[in-house]
């Protein structure tokens, strides 16, 4: 027990977290989309798990607490799944977002000038 909850354990976790941080900063520098996604968001999930499990002690907390938090998280995925199909479109059956499409085109053109 003392090994699992002693300062040495916490410092070890912290060291791993910092190492992961370095990876998540370096990864996207290759500018390959898959690598960016994995190193930025995959590692964020790993880091979040490590903080929750070890620092917040969810690993040893009653499962009830885990269920509470996970339920709320699942509801957020539901929210995203129900909402994203509408927000992520620039035109629909009887509607159109001309201003948004113009902004996307202008923004991309401006970006092309930068590079």
């Amino acid at each position: 027990m003392s090994d699992d909850h002693g300062p040495a354990h916490y410092i070890r976790i912290w060291a791993i977290l910092v190492a992961l941080l370095v990876v998540s900063v370096i990864g996207p520098m290759f500018e390959i989309q898959v690598v960016t996604l994995i190193t930025a968001f995959g590692i964020a999930c790993v880091k979040a798990y490590m903080v929750a499990a070890n620092f917040m002690h969810l690993k040893t907390e009653k499962t009830l607490a885990v269920y509470m938090l996970v339920t709320c998280l699942v509801f957020m995925f539901l929210f995203f799944a129900g909402t994203a199909p509408d927000v992520m479109k620039t035109e629909g059956t009887n509607w159109d977002k001309p201003a948004l499409r113009a902004m996307i085109a202008a923004g991309l053109a401006e970006g092309a000038d930068h590079h």
């Binding site: 929210f79 129900g82 909402t83 509408d86 927000v87 977002k97 201003a99 948004l100 902004m103």
Partner: peptide, 12 residues
């Protein structure tokens, strides 16, 4: 919507 926002997002 005139500046790229989405009013339907509020409804959601």
């Amino acid at each position: 919507p005139d500046r790229g926002g989405d009013p339907v997002l509020w409804q959601h």
